[in-house]
């Protein structure tokens, strides 16, 4: 059954019908039109407003903009201010380290899921998904209990006589890093599992049949095929950890400044919305650069998925 007619007779249909026709035609950009409208309202317009703030000198009073004039001052300041430089560098290092550690710890879990029996699979799935069902704030607070001065880690180490004074873990960047990895690990593991469970188990059998050891199969078959999963997971973990606010705020003890906490302070405490806008733009642009880099690397390693280009 044809969806109306793809080429309506001129004059035979009204304007409305022609639009519906075009939307249902499945051709060109038309099917994307509803999504484009929604995105314009919820993403593009707020983004333009945000952008405009960064180019303005504004005065905020009672939570609203009292006056604004065009200005490049904030952009120029941000690009020369060493505080921005060190803060974004810290955020970037933290996010990249978190991403790398999530790959490092997440991959073996996903591999175990792939080769494990029914109960191993279930256990891994439950342990991966359960944390996602609790709030990130609650999970972060749990680390306070574990890493704190009288927390589980310190009391165990002291109980074993390995240290005689509690280690200061809380409120250091180590605490932040540990929390970041734990919070974001499921986001790495799930795409990996999703991609790996699409693998044809016959491929692994074929590899073994052709003489590959377990390690050989992992290196030559499983890893190359799971690159898309690593890419997706890395992109998600990076985006989330680069822009995260809760973990550094709670585990860093309020004095760990990363991009998100800086923006929070600029917007909420010092009411410097223009500064906040510029910071957000830098955050977004740098984040996009890394995402593009991840995508390029992923594509490079998955050339075989791309059509008939031999």
């Amino acid at each position: 059954m044809a969806v109306a007619s793809r080429t309506p007779l001129p004059g035979a249909h009204g304007m409305g019908e022609r639009i519906v026709d075009a939307l249902l035609s499945g051709r060109g950009i038309w099917p994307a039109v509803p999504a484009i409208i929604v995105l314009t309202v919820v993403a593009v317009i707020p983004f333009v407003i945000l952008l405009s703030l960064g180019f303005s000198d504004i005065e905020v009073s009672r939570g609203a903009i009292a006056s604004r004039t065009f200005s490049l001052e904030y952009i120029a300041n941000a690009l020369t201010d060493p505080l921005y430089w060190t803060t974004f560098q810290r955020s970037m290092t933290l996010a990249l380290t978190t991403t790398a550690l999530c790959v490092f710890f997440g991959y073996p879990v996903a591999y175990l899921y792939l080769v494990g029996g029914r109960w191993t699979k279930r256990l891994i799935l439950v342990l991966t998904i359960a944390p996602l069902l609790t709030s990130g704030i609650v999970r972060t607070y749990a680390w306070l209990v574990i890493l704190g001065g009288r927390g589980v880690v310190n009391s165990t180490l002291m109980g074993l006589g390995l240290i005689d004074q509690p280690l200061r873990i809380m409120n250091t960047h180590w605490a932040v890093l540990i929390g970041m990895v734990q919070i974001h690990l499921p986001v790495m593991i799930l795409p990996l599992i999703a991609v790996m469970s699409r693998h044809d188990t016959r491929l692994m059998e074929a590899a073994a049949n052709l003489g590959a050891s377990h390690l050989g199969t992992l290196r030559t078959v499983i890893m190359p095929l799971s690159v898309p999963g690593i890419g997706t997971g890395a992109a998600l973990v990076f985006t989330l950890s680069y822009t995260t606010f809760v973990v550094p705020q709670l585990l860093g003890g309020g004095n760990y400044l990363n991009a998100a906490t800086m923006i929070y302070e600029q917007v909420v405490y010092s009411l410097e919305w223009s500064k906040g806008s510029v910071s957000s733009m830098i955050l977004m642009v740098t984040c996009l650069i890394v995402l593009v880099a991840i995508a390029l690397v992923t594509n490079h390693f998955t050339r075989w998925t791309q059509g008939r280009d031999a």
Binding site: D200, R202, A206, A207, T220, T305
Partner: peptide, 10 residues
């Protein structure tokens, strides 16, 4: 194999 199980990435 019935499905050939060729390595798609090679």
């Amino acid at each position: 194999f019935q499905s050939y199980a060729l390595f798609p990435h090679l």
